[in-house]
């Protein structure tokens, strides 16, 4: 049960990092378009944000898992063994996870900058920061028992991610 709980909270932390990261991409693309053509409306911003969270978020989740899984699977038992309880360490684990994921995917596996918000140093730094916060989130949750409320909320979020992209697609046609 502890192992199952560990993985559920690790997936949640990864999803948390992805959800924080998706709007970074929206910000950079909209910022460029706004400076170039100066015609971005509030509706465009809302549509882009929602679209990125629901369509781009799941891709980021899969990419970030590449870093989060090994880092936390190896790191968490080590921290327990050495009795290190600093939440900052988990934050650094999260930061390293995002760093490793982006490096592997963009430089080694694909060779192009597929994570659209990370094409500038500032954008990259923001992505790393989301990993840091995800690490903190993991540290604050992974020892908690799974409550019915938590399970219900998780199911609702998963369903939302299945339905929302289809709704957005319909609206954008």
């Amino acid at each position: 049960m502890r192992i199952l709980r560990f993985f559920i909270y690790l997936f949640c932390a990864t999803a948390f990092a992805s959800l924080l990261s998706a709007p970074i991409s929206s910000f950079f693309s909209l910022y460029w378009i706004d400076t170039y053509v100066d015609s971005v409306s509030v509706a465009d911003i809302v549509f882009t944000l929602l679209s990125d969270i629901f369509n781009y978020g799941p891709t980021l989740f899969l990419i970030y898992l590449i870093g989060f899984l090994p880092t936390f699977i190896i790191g968490t038992p080590l921290l327990s063994y050495f009795k290190i309880r600093s939440v900052i360490t988990f934050g650094l684990f999260g930061l390293c996870s995002v760093m490793v994921s982006i490096f592997l995917v963009q430089e080694v596996i694909i060779g192009t900058k597929v994570i659209s918000g990370s094409r500038t140093s500032f954008g990259l730094a923001l992505h790393y920061l989301t990993g840091f916060f995800a690490g903190l989130y993991f540290a604050s949750t992974y020892k908690n028992k799974l409550s019915a409320k938590f399970i219900f909320s998780s199911v609702v979020v998963i369903l939302l991610f299945i339905v929302a992209p289809k709704m957005l697609n319909i609206f954008s046609q």
Binding site: S25, S29, L30, D44, N55, T59
Partner: peptide, 15 residues
């Protein structure tokens, strides 16, 4: 279009 990752490249189709 959207990007390969699913990210929005632009909300505009004409200008």
């Amino acid at each position: 279009c959207v990007d390969y990752s699913g990210a929005q490249i632009t909300p505009f189709t004409e200008m």
